[in-house]
C-alpha cells in the first residue's frame, strides 16, 4: 500500500465516522468552557462600568489588562493556574477516546456502543503506554539537552560566539524533533498492536518500535503530512482573521464561527492521522497474517501429502506382503 492510498482510505474512514468527530469537538469546547465561563464573569466584574473596555473592540489595549491587575490580579491568576488541570483532564480524555476511535475504525459502520466499549476496554492499557512514552520523551529531552548545556560550559568556542551556539541548537532541535516524532509513532503503533494482537503492554510497545523501524519512511511520511496539512489550515485561518474586524457583535460571531471551524478541522486532522496510520497498519498486519496463514496451509498440505504417501506406501507394502 502506498502512503497516498493510506491517506485516501484514512480520510474516508474519518469522514464515515463524522458523528464521532462532532462528539470529539464537543469534548474539546466543553473542556475549554470550564475555564472560559469564570473568565467571562471575572472580566465582566473587573471591567465594572469602565469606558476603557470599549478600546478592546478596536484592538488590543495593553494598559487595560495591566490595570486589571490593580483590582483582579489574583482572580485571573487563579484562572490561569487552573489551566494545568484542564490540560490534564483533556489529556486523559484524549487517551480514553483513542480506544473508541480505533475500535470504531475496525467496524464497518459507526456505532456509539463500539466507541464507548473501545474507550473503556483499552483506557488503562493505553494510559500505561502513553505514560511510558511520556517518560521516554523526557529521557530523550534530557539526553539531548543536558550534554548540550554541559558542553557550553566546557567548550570555549561555543560560548564566545552565540551564533555557533544557535546553529548547534538549531541542528539539535531538528534532531530532537525527528526522534520525538519517532517515539510518537511508536506510541501510536503500539496501541494498534495492543488492539489487534491483544498483546501485553510491553510486547505491544516492542512490536510498535519494530513496526516503525521496519517501515520507517512510510510511517514517517504519514505522520509528517498529517502535521503539515494543519499548518496550511492555520495559514488560511490567520489570513481570514486579519481581514475580519471584530468591532461589532456580528463581527465577533463571524470570527467565533471561523475559529470553531478551525478547531473542528484540527479534530478532523488528528483523527485523520490515526485513520491513515490505522489503514496502513491493518493493511500490513493483514497481509502478514495472510502470508502466515497461507504458509500454515501450505505446510499442512505438505504434511498431509507426506502422510498420504506414507499411508499409500504402507498400504502397498501390506498388500504386497499379503499377496
Amino acid at each position: 500500500m502506498n502512503i497516498f492510498r493510506a491517506y485516501i482510505n484514512g480520510f474516508r474512514l474519518t469522514m464515515r465516522n463524522h458523528k464521532m468527530l462532532f462528539f470529539l469537538y464537543a469534548v474539546n469546547i466543553l473542556t475549554a468552557l470550564i475555564l472560559v465561563v469564570p473568565f467571562f464573569q471575572t472580566l465582566k466584574i473587573a471591567a465594572n462600568n469602565t469606558v476603557e473596555i470599549e478600546s478592546l473592540l478596536t484592538g488590543f489595549d495593553f494598559n487595560f489588562f495591566v490595570d486589571l491587575a490593580q483590582t483582579s490580579a489574583q482572580k485571573f491568576l487563579n484562572i490561569f493556574s487552573s489551566l494545568k488541570w484542564i490540560v490534564l483532564v483533556y489529556w486523559l480524555l484524549s487517551i480514553f477516546f483513542l480506544g473508541g476511535i480505533i475500535k470504531v475504525f475496525n467496524k464497518d459502520k459507526f456505532s456509539w456502543r463500539a466507541f464507548f466499549v473501545g474507550s473503556f476496554k483499552y483506557f488503562l492499557r493505553f494510559l500505561f503506554i502513553s505514560l511510558i512514552f511520556l517518560i521516554l520523551q523526557v529521557l530523550l529531552f534530557l539526553m539531548i539537552w543536558i550534554p548540550f548545556v554541559l558542553a557550553t560550559g566546557v567548550t570555549k568556542d561555543l560560548i564566545t560566539n552565540e551564533q555557533n551556539l544557535f546553529i548547534i541548537a538549531g541542528i539539535l532541535i531538528i534532531f530532537h524533533g525527528i526522534l520525538s516524532v519517532t517515539l510518537q509513532m511508536a506510541s501510536d503503533y503500539s496501541k494498534y498492536y495492543l488492539v489487534f494482537e491483544n498483546k501485553n503492554i510491553f510486547r505491544a510497545i516492542l512490536s510498535g518500535f519494530g513496526f516503525v523501524s521496519r517501515n520507517y519512511y512510510k510511517t514517517f511520511s504519514i505522520f509528517i503530512v498529517n502535521q503539515i496539512v494543519p499548518v496550511f489550515a492555520f495559514y488560511i485561518y490567520f489570513n481570514l482573521s486579519r481581514d475580519i474586524t471584530t468591532q461589532t457583535i456580528v463581527g465577533i460571531v463571524i470570527m467565533f464561527i471561523i475559529q470553531q471551524i478551525y478547531i473542528f478541522c484540527r479534530i478532523i486532522f488528528k483523527t485523520w492521522r490515526y485513520a491513515s496510520e490505522y489503514e496502513y497498519f491493518t493493511y500490513l498486519f493483514l497481509k502478514n497474517a495472510r502470508i502466515k496463514a497461507s504458509r500454515m496451509i501450505f505446510e499442512n498440505i505438505e504434511v498431509k501429502t507426506a502422510e498420504t504417501i506414507r499411508q499409500w506406501q504402507d498400504n502397498r507394502r501390506k498388500s504386497e506382503n499379503n499377496q
Binding site: N28, E54, S94, I252
Partner: peptide, 29 residues
C-alpha cells in the same frame, strides 16, 4: 450603559486559545 460586547470578544479569544492549547497536549499521547 456598560457594554458586554468587548467581554464576549475577549472571552471568545480566550476560548479559542484554550481549545488550541488543550488540543495540542491531547495529541501528545
Amino acid at each position: 450603559e456598560p457594554s458586554v460586547v468587548p467581554v464576549v470578544k475577549y472571552s471568545s479569544k480566550f476560548l479559542f486559545a484554550l481549545q488550541n492549547i488543550i488540543h495540542f497536549f491531547g495529541m501528545l499521547i
